[in-house]
């Protein structure tokens, strides 16, 4: 039975082994300042993965996140001068609305979330391209510093990005473990029919889960846009797949009901350690993508808990 007890810790063990391996080959990896900078750098990805966790936790998926983030970078850039810091509310509201519509299409119209969110992503992309006039926009530097300059400051050596990530993680963790909504999410993910039979308002819960993932995508998009001081309909491209990978490697399987936001933290770290390790170990740039894929297969094979999956599809 010790194997059974050990299983939830597999992602942690994978992470520890990876860190030790890289550190053993190149001790420079262990330098604290380098590590903090490294982790601070991936905060937008982590936030996106956090949101993705909600969608995957209920057994769905949200493929619109990248496009929502793209749209938000444009929205933030265009309306920053007009609304100041309150543009953040507008951004999150946009993400929430798009997510809620995806959720509504999935639950009420019986369109699988894979397709519904993919399609909503196209619609968001359309909005982003329209609003940006198909150009890369840049923010007014003064307005940016006045409204969001605090995002990239330091307090006692801790980058504020990390604090934001910590707050969001705490919020997501609280939702997941300490609220009835969180328990309902688990019920829906573990067995939707049973959840319906026990009187849960499953439709509402699922719509809210997608709205949450949309909101997190919006926050990630806002951070991108402030960080890069601009907005563009392609700014966040490439992050969707990484966010999904981070969630899956962390041990939240696509079947739902297992895992959670802490797993996503570990998963994101694993992804980042693998990526960075290749730089530290001086892997040839053209080889990196391939090696990333291979390590990914190994990491997933080691990490996922198959006891809850009857048929592997």
């Amino acid at each position: 039975m010790s194997m059974e007890k050990l299983k939830p810790w597999f992602p942690w063990i994978t992470l520890a082994v990876l860190v030790l391996l890289v550190g053993a080959v190149n001790p420079a990896f262990f330098k604290l300042s380098g590590m903090v900078a490294l982790v601070a750098d991936i905060v937008p990805l982590f936030i996106m993965a956090l949101g993705m966790t909600f969608a995957i936790y209920i057994g769905g998926i949200d493929l619109s996140m990248q496009q929502v983030a793209n749209l938000v970078t444009v929205v933030a850039t265009v309306y920053l001068a007009q609304f100041g810091p309150f543009v953040a509310l507008l951004c999150v509201a946009a993400g929430f609305a798009i997510g809620a519509v995806s959720g509504w299409i999935t639950t009420r119209q019986f369109v699988p979330s894979f397709v519904a969110t993919l399609a909503m992503g196209f619609i968001a992309l359309s909005g982003a391209r329209f609003l940006s006039g198909e150009r890369a926009l840049s923010m007014n530097a003064e307005a940016r510093d006045a409204s969001f300059g605090w995002m990239f400051g330091n307090t006692a050596g801790v980058p504020h990005e990390l604090i934001i990530a910590g707050v969001l993680l705490a919020f997501a963790w609280f939702l997941q473990t300490r609220t009835t909504f969180g328990r309902a999410l688990k019920a829906v993910g573990a067995g939707e029919l049973a959840a319906v039979a026990s009187g849960l308002k499953v439709d509402r819960i699922k719509i809210l889960a997608f709205a949450l993932s949309g909101s997190f995508a919006a926050i990630a998009g806002l951070m991108f846009s402030v960080k890069l001081s601009g907005g563009d309909a392609n700014l966040a491209n490439g992050f969707l797949i990484l966010a999904i990978v981070a969630v899956l490697v962390g041990g939240t399987p696509l079947t739902g009901g297992v895992g959670g936001v802490i797993n996503t933290l570990v998963g994101t770290l694993i992804v980042v350690v693998i990526r960075t390790a290749m730089v530290y170990l001086e892997v040839d740039a053209t080889m990196q993508q391939m090696i990333f894929g291979i390590i990914l297969i190994v990491a997933i094979a080691m990490t996922i808990d198959r006891s809850k999956m009857r048929i592997v599809k």
Binding site: I241, I244, V245, L248, P253, L254, T255, T286, M287, Q288, Q289, M290, I291, F292, G293, I294, L296, I297, I300, A301, I304, R306, M309, V312, K313
Partner: peptide, 17 residues
């Protein structure tokens, strides 16, 4: 026994790489 979504996604990375 890796779900096809993940296995094929990772193989896609390997292929592109």
């Amino acid at each position: 026994k890796i779900p096809s979504f993940m296995a094929s996604l990772a193989m896609g990375f390997v292929g592109t790489g």
